[in-house]
Nucleic acid binder design. Sequence first.
DNA 1: CCTTGAATCTGTAGCCACTACAGGTTCTAG
DNA 2: CTAGAACCTGTAGTGGCTACAGATTCAAGG
Lengths: 133, 133
Amino acid sequence: MGQWLSIGALSRATGVKVETIRYYERIGLMPAPLRSEGGHRQFREAELRRLRFIRRARELGFTLDEVRELLKLADGGAPCAEVEVMARAHLTGVRERIADLQRLAESLAHLTRRCERVDTSAVCPLIDDLFGD
Amino acid sequence: MGQWLSIGALSRATGVKVETIRYYERIGLMPAPLRSEGGHRQFREAELRRLRFIRRARELGFTLDEVRELLKLADGGAPCAEVEVMARAHLTGVRERIADLQRLAESLAHLTRRCERVDTSAVCPLIDDLFGD
DNA sequence: CCTTGAATCTGTAGCCACTACAGGTTCTAG
DNA sequence: CTAGAACCTGTAGTGGCTACAGATTCAAGG
């Protein structure tokens, strides 16, 4: 009943799974928290904020390494310009992935459209296409 | 100099890396090929066609399990309807991923836009946002 | 025929970001 | 005091490769 959260409470508060929290600690993304007599983790406000930050950055698609970088910038006073550079680079990457997937969806749609026109169970043009030279 | 390809030649012919070809064999996606006296793999037309099929299906974003399924269908005469079902399901998945990424790009664009408006090196609104409750 | 060096062989470990156990200990409510 | 929920550590698995290390085999040139 103090000012701390158990790992389960922190998990509920952030939406990050218990195992993942321990994983983040293991890889040094989260600091080692205080412990109870018996060895249970006790988290405080700072850790809650940090973990929320991590979760949101992950939701924006940053890799853990990028999150690490972002946290370093944040901890170091965060010159906005540098953060923006990272975010923009990331955005560019995301847009490229979207473009890739769109091309892919295009191809798939095209292939399935060809499938539609085959009466019942002839040789599938999609399969044929994948095999063709 | 017969009718077979070495693993390197197959790799060049398909664009699939040598290690990946061996990996596909290990997981049973490619059949175990003939071997030379000394133990080197000897691939023939059938394997070339199969590997090309795999590569193209992978380019369309199918998982290896889906590729396996597709190959089973292809080997079994391929009733076009079933193939179409798989392809459509896959297409739906791809479109969902595109939608997810677009939402993500939207958020990122929004955040970086807010960054732009900060003069020089104030507290970064992007970082702030990720920390906020 | 012999040598050189490129290609190939097997087996194992690493990557990312978790997730899922197993087998034990601690905490908390009744 | 006790039951059982929550927690602990450590290890292994996921997908789809990729990257070694250290040994062997192959093809071409002399």
